[in-house]
Design a protein around this nucleic acid. Sequence first.
DNA 1: TCCGATTGATATCCTGAAGATATGGATGGG
DNA 2: CCCATCCATATCTTCAGGATATCAATCGGA
Lengths: 317, 317
Amino acid sequence: MDGLETRQLRYFVAVAEELHFGRAAQRLGMAQPPLSKAIRDLERQLGVQLLTRTTRQVGITPAGEVFLRDARTALAAVAAAARRARQAGQSRPMLRVALKADFDGGLLAPILDAYAGLSAGSSAEVMPVELVLGGPGDQIEALHDGRADVALALTPFDEHGVDSEPLLTEPRVVALPAVDPLAARTDLCLADLAGRRLPNGSAADSGDVAPPPLGSAAVKDLSQLFNLVEVGSMVWFLPAWVARQFPRPNIAYRPLPEIPPVTLAVAWPAELRSAPVAAFVRTAQEVADAAVTATPQPRHRGPADADAAGPRQRADH
Amino acid sequence: MDGLETRQLRYFVAVAEELHFGRAAQRLGMAQPPLSKAIRDLERQLGVQLLTRTTRQVGITPAGEVFLRDARTALAAVAAAARRARQAGQSRPMLRVALKADFDGGLLAPILDAYAGLSAGSSAEVMPVELVLGGPGDQIEALHDGRADVALALTPFDEHGVDSEPLLTEPRVVALPAVDPLAARTDLCLADLAGRRLPNGSAADSGDVAPPPLGSAAVKDLSQLFNLVEVGSMVWFLPAWVARQFPRPNIAYRPLPEIPPVTLAVAWPAELRSAPVAAFVRTAQEVADAAVTATPQPRHRGPADADAAGPRQRADH
DNA sequence: TCCGATTGATATCCTGAAGATATGGATGGG
DNA sequence: CCCATCCATATCTTCAGGATATCAATCGGA
């Protein structure tokens, strides 16, 4: 009676995403008829209609929607099992740390140093670190499908299935072309950005003040982002530490009090808190605490930037 | 390259649990040779040795341990996908509430009433309730594999992958045979129970003061438990509300300050917070609050029990 | 030390299900 | 009204999952 196979889940996800049997079959590297049959068998097995097909169009039922969601997480869980097993089988297992390039708040290097330095004490809970930078999806997704053991991510993110501890909170600044008239002003508000293209694609003059995603998947690293900003095709919201770490002559960073601050957090799969992960998390927290309390604020740029890169705050949970 | 099937996971879990190919094959309803081959193929596919076999004995490697854990959760995720899809496909979808019989703190009936009464307001977020009482594992497991949408459970439980809100906290009492000499005393401590058999199976004279599990899977409901206690073969720790709800002539409930109190909580899968679930959770909290603030303490039994069933406290997170 | 019992591995055969190809039928657009 | 599009049906083929029989290695006991 029971016994769903991941193959069936993969097939359904493909069809549900494409809403087109032909394209889904092509994506799966198979012919269309067996795919149709597989989906029909799946529906019969579940006793539920997942898709509505006319001869011209495929739609998804409410039950199909929930199954699509659950199928995706189940597939991620299976992939995670495989990845973690492979990882655990390595003779030199690595602690895989996922992060978005340049979005570490300047903490990555000291954290890695401190973590490596831990080996003097108890060697068992320290292992070599491997950075997971690219790949599909965000860092949290890398945790879910087993590509990484721990992640540095900017909140807010999807907390489902992960535990996390905040490391540091900073306000966000807006990155403008230096030639932009707004760059001459020190106090900006969201309304001033009317007409400029924002990260979420919509123009700023639409009334939404929702916090724009600053980790849009489309832009892979800061270099690309800086290029877009420099040519004036976009403005962007960035954590203040980025303004501190990456001064650029053609880009002006300005504070924007309306935008809520971001928090950099260390996250790991909720089920899994191995000794090395725990040690890494602890180390990260200690480094972040030290950075907040001990570090004098570096000010390499103009006075406006000093405001933008206001005092670091230890994030409170 | 990739493409792990749930069948492979089921096979591995069986072998890893039995540590015996023959028995595992029997459990899976298949012959031993293909099972051996399947496991070997799995290991080759992962590039990792999961089991150590001599001709006489099967052991599990560290990698196998982590894979076993992940495989179990992946299988639960797949099962959950199937169950929830079936559920969502029903023409009259039900809100399935998992709980342990008689362990609802007396809140179940008022919660259900209040929840049903909600339909007057916004009908969309209320659906008929189905109780999930039995089945393998505990209520949290029922959430994980999709047998239930919400659960009432006693903390502490495994919080991984679930969100929860506490409803009420009460001290625990010990249930003794009325004829037990200790029943004459009003103030007991753990040491007094030396020699009696405790729920976790170990005798009380072993030095552990760890909170004994009061939801041992072995005993399905309170009737069985009461029988065991009445014949003097066991003493048991129970939430104080049980003493209030189920007075028994042959059983004495006595307070035991050393045992930490329990909290009844409402829990749901972390990924899933549908409108009906949210409404149920809210209703449960409101009912619990009302019960704590408004209910006069009913006292049907002797003075000692009154102490045992001390004031209800609203649980603080 | 030897023999039998236990247990996993190997060899060979078979069945069924996954998949391919060819084709039909329904629908929407021009 | 016809053609293009797209899902369903029918039939055939292949191969992987599984069964049976057997071997090989190890442990225990006499």
